[in-house]
């Protein structure tokens, strides 16, 4: 019986910054980046003691190609930035932008690559 393996590698990087630019303005930003890889290794379809190749099967093709069907290569990038502007002691104006990108570089069942950009703005009252 053959030995086969499954290997995974994951990288995660994140940063965050917050700053009070002026007495009325606060700024913030953060970033998250991930890179993920996974693959089957060492998969061999050995016929063993079988005298002839079974009808409909290609051992060499199966050994070289089948393990690659499960390979995964995924990356994700999320960037957020925003600002708070203090109009008065009780009123704050806020705004935020987020960029989120998902990269499916080795589609498994289907290509899951996608991206969105979101915006938010608001007025805050403290009482």
């Amino acid at each position: 019986m053959d030995q086969a393996g499954y290997r995974q590698n994951h990288h995660l990087v994140w940063t965050n910054v917050q700053a009070q630019a002026t007495s009325r303005v606060d700024l913030f930003a953060n970033l998250v980046w991930t890179r993920n890889r996974a693959a089957i290794e060492g998969l061999e379809y050995e016929p063993g003691p079988l005298e002839a190749q079974l009808v409909g099967l290609d051992y060499r093709l199966m050994s070289s190609a089948f393990s690659g069907f499960s390979d995964l290569k995924i990356g994700q990038f999320v960037q957020t930035a925003g600002v708070h502007y203090r109009l008065s002691e009780r009123v704050v104006l806020t705004g935020t932008v987020e960029v989120n990108r998902y990269d499916d570089r080795e589609p498994y069942l289907f290509d899951a690559t996608g991206r969105y950009v979101s915006f938010a703005a608001g007025l805050q009252f403290v009482f």
Binding site: D2, G5, N9, L12, W14, V17, Q20, Y45
Partner: peptide, 27 residues
């Protein structure tokens, strides 16, 4: 100093599994 804060981090994970493998008509 002043009203600034910075933070950052990195994490790496490597995992490997080995097992016996058998399929129909191949042991």
């Amino acid at each position: 100093g002043g009203p600034i804060q910075l933070s950052a981090g990195y994490t790496y994970q490597r995992e490997q599994t080995e097992t016996g493998f058998a399929t129909l008509a191949f042991v």
